Simulated assay, not measured.
Amino acid sequence: MMGHACCATLGPWSGLELDGTGLRRAVIRLGGQLATLLEGVNLKERDRIELPDSPEQIPTEELSALATQWFSGRTVLYYNTAHGNQIEYYDPSGWLYLWYPRNKRAVPGGWYIEGEDLYARYGPNTYNPVTRRYGGDWQRSSLVSMIRDVVDSAPRDVFELSTGRVPFPLRAHPAYPSIAAVKPEP
């Protein structure tokens, strides 16, 4: 369950490029070439996600359609100061899998987009330590706020969160600069 704030710098392997239309493009680079995110995961030109600099200026019907492309079938790394690092896989079927800092398992839930908002619901036995609320109900998050918290994303279930397992305990802080940088602490 997320609260959202923005990360401006994505680190030496990643960055945001501004194009002439005012859209920022999440790009992972290594030596000027698109880098391999994780073993077997390549970020290709068609897999790039264009994130708007000012998403609040996009008409609602366009924002909703674009957001579905930005999230569906993708693993997304978020960061904000309240929650720290969070990683979610948005299955196109409407299932959602959250890897929350220090959790030993991925938290399953559901998701859908309606208008300018993404709705997520986690089980009633879940707890959000920031809002101090238990799960079970659909929670609305502004797409504009969520987009501002995106650090990086990659196609498919990169960490296989849909299995319910997490590869290691995710640290809350400091922010990971990219999905490729998400590795266990030494």
Rank of each mutant, 00 (worst) to 15 (best):
Y127C: 00
T36W: 13
T81G: 00
V151H: 02
T68R: 12
L51I: 15
A67V: 00
Y97A: 09
W99T: 03
Y79Q: 01
W13Y: 11
V76I: 09
T60I: 08
G94C: 03
I28N: 10
W111H: 08
R24T: 13
P169L: 09
W111M: 10
A181R: 07
L98D: 11
A172T: 02
L43C: 12
R46V: 08
D137Q: 12
F159I: 01
S64G: 07
Y90W: 14
D53G: 09
E17I: 07
D117R: 10
Y100P: 00
R133C: 04
G31K: 04
L118T: 12
T81A: 00
S64Q: 15
R74K: 09
K44C: 14
V144N: 10
G15M: 08
A67F: 12
K44L: 15
G94F: 02
E50L: 11
L66I: 11
W138Y: 02
V150W: 06
M146G: 10
Y79W: 10
E61M: 00
Y78M: 05
A8E: 14
W111P: 06
G110M: 14
V41K: 14
T60S: 13
V130H: 01
I179P: 06
V151W: 02
P169I: 03
R140N: 12
S14G: 15
I49S: 14
C7E: 09
T21G: 14
V182G: 02
I58T: 06
D137W: 08
G31W: 07
R46P: 00
C7I: 09
V41M: 12
L10K: 11
N85V: 01
S72I: 00
L51W: 13
D152Q: 08
A35M: 10
Y89D: 01
G22A: 10
I87E: 03
G136Y: 04
P12Q: 07
R25T: 13
H4E: 05
R171S: 03
L170P: 10
G73F: 03
P101F: 01
V41Y: 15
I58F: 06
W13C: 06
D149L: 02
A181S: 13
L30I: 04
G32T: 05
I49T: 15
L18M: 09
A154V: 05
V182W: 03
P169G: 02
E114K: 15
P184W: 07
R48G: 02
W70C: 06
V150R: 08
T163H: 03
L16S: 09
P169D: 04
A180W: 09
Y134T: 10
R25A: 03
A35F: 07
T131R: 05
G164E: 04
I179K: 05
L143N: 05
E185P: 00
R156L: 09
E88K: 04
A175S: 04
Q57E: 13
Y100V: 00
E56N: 08
E45S: 10
D157Q: 06
S54P: 00
P101S: 01
Y134I: 06
D47C: 11
G109I: 11
E160G: 13
S64D: 14
N128V: 01
F159G: 06
Q86Y: 10
Y97E: 07
Q57H: 11
A8N: 11
M146F: 09
T68K: 12
G40Q: 03
R121E: 10
G31F: 07
L23T: 05
D91E: 14
T21K: 14
